[in-house]
């Protein structure tokens, strides 16, 4: 088991190197000059030149990448071109709110998605099933920025129960987590439904029913446990989706997280900041996938790690 974890962590290194190279190529092939964007739209050529020299952007590209990688190997993610602060510091101040938002969204997603999925699966093709699936189709199709604005409109503007933006207190996270979690819960609900339906027609369930086992026990113990593998997979994948969704959610709810930071960095062609954030998010995603893989073993003892 430990050996497996170590192996997986080592496999992270080539993945992240790949990500960094891809990211470097993509952001440098996008037109735009950070010195010009930082100096301002109305900056004179002299001002732009001063910024270029100060930031070392007048050096050839290979030299810039070389010094970036050298720094990275020593654990230095470089400094943001725009704010002149270390990228690591910028990310760490923003990381807590992003991870908090993602976690809470996962909670919303699992609570709502699992519940709705089970409800539908128990009575397939009933009114309740059809209604739930209709709503979840609506949920999948609804963009986060729209549902976010609608939630702000209802709960902040009309009812004035919750603040419309910010990221300093727990109450700031409720609306964004609902907006983000609900859209993913729809996916989860549909998957839960189909995977329960698959299991529920198997022989051992019929046997359990024939033995007179209580329906609640059949659903939660026998069916759900066997249907859980695809559900865990989708929760892991959705975690990545939620991290990505945080980009939009953070903008709509004015949250100070990594998602908004990435958008801002891309707008200003802040190369070290973009690379740092992408690497950071990629690393989290890889780790979450590892955790998901380990969960399989916990749910199904037949799965072993060698």
């Amino acid at each position: 088991m430990l050996g497996y974890i170590a192996k997986r962590l080592l496999q992270m290194i080539p993945t992240l190197i790949g990500v960094s190279i891809l990211c470097f190529i993509i952001i440098h092939s996008v037109p735009g000059d950070p010195a010009n964007l930082i100096a301002g739209v109305d900056a004179t050529a002299e001002e732009i030149q001063i910024v270029k020299e100060r930031l070392g952007l007048d050096r050839p590209l290979y030299e810039q990448y070389g010094s970036y990688v050298m720094g990275l190997l020593q654990g230095d993610m470089g400094k943001s071109l725009r704010s002149d602060r270390p990228v690591a510091e910028e990310l760490l101040t923003r990381f807590p709110s992003t991870i908090m938002l993602t976690m809470l969204s996962v909670v919303v997603m699992v609570l709502v998605g699992l519940f709705a999925g089970i409800m539908s699966a128990i009575r397939p093709n009933s009114m309740r099933d059809n209604a739930t699936m209709m709503v979840s189709l609506f949920g999948i199709s609804m963009p986060v920025f729209w549902s976010g604005i609608m939630l702000i409109l209802v709960f902040s503007y009309y009812l004035q129960w919750l603040p419309s933006g910010g990221s300093t207190q727990l109450k700031h996270y409720i609306l964004p987590a609902i907006a983000l979690g609900l859209s993913s819960s729809a996916v989860l609900a549909r998957l839960t439904r189909s995977s329960i339906l698959e299991v529920i027609h198997q022989d051992f369930i019929r046997t359990a029913r024939a033995k007179g086992v209580r329906e609640k026990l059949i659903i939660y113990k026998h069916t759900l446990k066997n249907a859980l593998i695809p559900i865990i997979t989708i929760v892991g994948l959705e975690f990545g989706h939620l991290l990505g969704g945080a980009v939009l959610t953070e903008t709509v709810f004015s949250m100070n997280g990594i998602g908004r930071y990435i958008i801002q960095s891309i707008q200003f062609r802040d190369y070290p900041a973009i690379q740092g954030s992408i690497l950071f998010v990629a690393a989290i995603f890889v780790i979450v996938n590892l955790v998901v893989d380990l969960c399989y073993g916990a749910v199904d003892p037949r799965i072993r790690y060698d």
Binding site: I149, I152, L153, S156, Y157, S164, G165, T251, V252, F253, S254, R260, Q264
Partner: peptide, 11 residues
């Protein structure tokens, strides 16, 4: 900082 126009107006 509130970059979203609609969010800023609601605030």
């Amino acid at each position: 900082p509130v970059p979203e126009n609609a969010a800023r107006v609601i605030m």
